[in-house]
Simulated assay, not measured.
Amino acid sequence: MYRAGGTLTGERDSASGVFRVRRLGTHLPPAPRSPAEARTFVADALRSWDVPGDKAGDIVLAASELVTNAFEHGSGGIAVRLRLAGDSLLLEVRDCSPDDPVLRRPQPESVRGRGLALIQALSSTWGHRRGGDGKWVWAEFDLS
């Protein structure tokens, strides 16, 4: 199980039918190895939360794409956060760049530029928001 920098907070469990809220986050360096570390971190978290394999695969791929974008187009350290609440999972990735993410429409022969289109296709919804000296790019996934 991935443990470097991860913290679990906000765990709630109630016999009265209130769902659990699970949160997990980690910090990654601005390095070529960070997308692989993000995949391991997210896959381990989803497995421990019993997220179904087909949904988990989509979320792991989305995390890899968002961390790759943060490394290639952002600056500074990268943060990854997961929040599971009921049948909804929120994936957030932060970098220190103030630049908005750009959804591209690459040419068919292009081998790059499809990351955010992939996020759009895999998630229920996605977007970004400014935070501190950078931005958070997020994607929400319906697990039902």
Rank of each mutant, 00 (worst) to 15 (best):
P52Q: 13
S64F: 04
S88Y: 03
L82D: 12
D58S: 14
L116R: 11
T26P: 03
G115H: 10
L84N: 06
R104D: 11
I78S: 00
L46F: 05
V60G: 11
E109P: 01
R20W: 00
R39H: 00
D50C: 10
S97M: 04
R104T: 02
A70K: 02
D54I: 00
A31K: 08
V21D: 11
T40D: 14
D44C: 04
F41D: 05
A79C: 09
A45M: 05
S64W: 03
R112E: 14
L116P: 15
W49R: 11
P98F: 08
E37K: 11
F19Q: 09
H73V: 06
P52D: 14
V102F: 12
R39S: 03
V60K: 14
I78Y: 04
S64Q: 08
P98R: 02
A70T: 03
S97F: 06
D95I: 09
A117V: 02
V51W: 09
R81W: 09
T40I: 01
A63H: 09
V60S: 10
L82Y: 05
V93M: 03
H73G: 03
R47Y: 11
H73E: 05
A85T: 14
L61T: 04
W49K: 13
L89H: 02
V111Q: 15
D58M: 11
T125L: 08
V80N: 05
A31Y: 11
A31H: 14
R94G: 08
L103H: 11
I59S: 01
D58N: 12
G17N: 02
L122C: 09
G76S: 05
V80L: 04
G115L: 01
L103I: 15
G86L: 10
I119L: 07
L90T: 11
P30S: 14
V42M: 00
G115M: 07
D100T: 09
L118S: 13
V21F: 03
R23G: 10
A121V: 06
L61V: 06
G25M: 02
A70L: 01
R83D: 10
P106W: 05
L46K: 13
R94C: 07
A121D: 03
G74P: 03
G17H: 04
V18H: 04
D50W: 10
V67G: 12
D54Q: 12
A62M: 07
V42G: 10
L24H: 13
R114C: 06
S97A: 07
S123C: 09
G53A: 01
G77V: 08
I119A: 07
V102R: 15
R114Y: 07
S34H: 08
A43L: 01
A117R: 14
G74C: 10
D99L: 01
T68P: 02
A36H: 05
V18D: 07
R94W: 14
L46P: 07
H73M: 09
P29Y: 10
L28N: 07
E92M: 04
D44T: 03
P29V: 08
V18A: 09
L82G: 07
G57Q: 00
S124P: 00
V111Y: 15
L61Q: 00
W49L: 15
R94N: 03
S124I: 08
A15L: 13
A85E: 15
V111P: 15
H73Q: 06
T40E: 14
G57D: 03
R104S: 10
S123G: 13
V111D: 13
L66T: 05
D44G: 02
A43M: 02
G74N: 04
V67W: 11
P106T: 10
V60Q: 12
R22Y: 04
T40K: 12
A121Q: 00
R114M: 05
A70G: 06
